[in-house]
């Protein structure tokens, strides 16, 4: 692996539950195939480490002592994070260009691009679980 690459997160924010609901099974499958082709292409180029969907069930803990626990998400009003890809690419720009190819953009989905700070190409800082451990969990 090249040493001048660093990890970036693509965070997928769903904003249009009604659009997805209105799709026919065939249309959904075509979209699914686009996503998988997109991912497989990135994986073949060694630009993506892994990707995970997130369960829709959300709990938000707040309050100074964590006393407020609210169930979410509120799909109608809030952007729901559907999942993420962990990229290993050479620049913020490259990660952004990859994000532009996300197949669900036309449906209103938003992709947030974030660099993972203070890290080495092998991911993570000493004392934190590695991506591999996370995915095995």
């Amino acid at each position: 692996m090249e040493t001048n690459t660093s990890p970036y997160l693509l965070i997928f924010r769903e904003t249009s539950p009604d659009v997805y609901k209105a799709m026919s099974p065939d249309e959904r499958q075509r979209l699914l195939e686009k996503w998988n082709n997109w991912y497989d292409g990135l994986a073949a180029e060694g630009k993506v480490q892994h990707g995970h969907p997130l369960e829709p069930k959300v709990r938000i803990v707040s309050g100074t002592r964590g006393e407020r626990v609210v169930d979410g998400p509120f799909a109608e009003t809030t952007e729901v994070i559907g999942g993420y890809f962990l990229l290993t690419v050479s620049s913020f720009e490259e990660a952004t260009e990859i994000a532009k190819n996300c197949p669900s953009l036309y449906l209103g989905l938003k992709v947030e691009v974030r660099a993972i700070a203070a890290s080495c190409p092998e991911l993570g800082v000493k004392g934190r679980p590695s991506a591999k451990d996370l995915s095995a969990a």
Binding site: R28, L31, N36, Y39, P53, G82, G83, F85
Partner: peptide, 17 residues
């Protein structure tokens, strides 16, 4: 059935089949 397929599409898009 729609709900289940919707969930499948979302999860598998990002997580694979």
């Amino acid at each position: 059935a729609q709900g289940a397929l919707l969930q499948a599409m979302r999860a598998w898009s990002i997580g694979g089949i």
